[in-house]
Nucleic acid binder design. Sequence first.
DNA 1: ATATTCCATCGCGCAATCCG
DNA 2: CGGATTGCGCGATGGAATAT
Length: 365
Amino acid sequence: MAEFENSERELLDALLEALLALPQAHAQIEQSEVKIGPRGEADALIGAFINRQPLLLLVEIKAQLFPRDVREAIWQLRNNQAHLSNSGDDREIIPFFVARAISPGAREIFREERVGYFDLGGSLYIPGKKAFIFLDKPAPKKGTKKFDSIFQGQKARALQEIYERRQDWLGVKDLADASGVSPATASETLTELERREWVDVQGAGPSKQRRLRAARPLLEAWTSYASDQKAPTVRRYYVPKGSDALELALRLDQACDEATAAYAVTGEVAAQIYAPYLSSISQLRCRIEPGQKLIEALLNLDARPVAEGWNLGIIEAKSRRDVAVGQRIDGVCYAPPLQVYLDLLQASGRSREMAMHLRSECLDK
DNA sequence: ATATTCCATCGCGCAATCCG
DNA sequence: CGGATTGCGCGATGGAATAT
């Protein structure tokens, strides 16, 4: 608890500092831990002058804010606002949220609702009638890291499964079993989606189920995340007599089969299978489960590492779990469409076009 | 029973440091 | 002075406890 008090102080101090940094502005904390009306309370009241306009900020402090939290908290704060405006103070009262980090979706809601906000990244929004302030700073590093974490590691795996089965209602256990992540991780992934209001919820307790509602926003967010990430390491090889990528894929299948190595073809070749676009492709991209099996498979193919003129690219996989197989078509294992899409985004050149094509054919519905 | 939260452990990314 | 290397701290992870 003491720790929470500390961070509350820290956030308030940061807010005051930001307010005072505005030209012609003044601000001070008038009260903290305020009781308002029958059962309302606010974390602080801040009196401020901005553009010579007297304002009263009704402040609520949170650690982080997602759309879900925002909707829950706004009506409460509105209530308090109503009580305060009956108290004879003629300053304009602005409901206001302060948090360590505020998700992009939450910011949007604040602006729609004309509720003020401030986060540690320095973003400041004060929707006063005569004193309007809007400073949009990129979210702080720690913050973005937190919001992006759903696209990383095991959660990304779970998320892929959720996307694949976006028509279905999923329980935590279903998801855990189907995607190979622990129930804890499955639960947290779904909870995070809930906070972003990207899933519908049905039932509660052990019979709780969720279904992806906002497939498109999810895809948007994932796209911009993937575009910002640096591409994973790709090892390039030349396989003799492998000029045709499809034919090479068949030999890859055989080589991996002999080495009992899991693999999944991705990139242009996979995109071509899901949503035909280009006619000739000469480079095959895939993931192969790492370790001895990978070495064996490469040996079976007689693949040689090269810098130029490669026809086989192996995307670095940290474990067997990174090698997600979507389906097997004509004797070749392909990564699921979403994975292919993400891989295309990370690659360069023409592949971005293919990514967009694949998305419109397979993913946007 | 399953879902959620908590906590100890693990792994990764970052930064200060050392070496060429 | 630039680049690799090791040490450190934070966050992800999944098992265990707890809630529903």
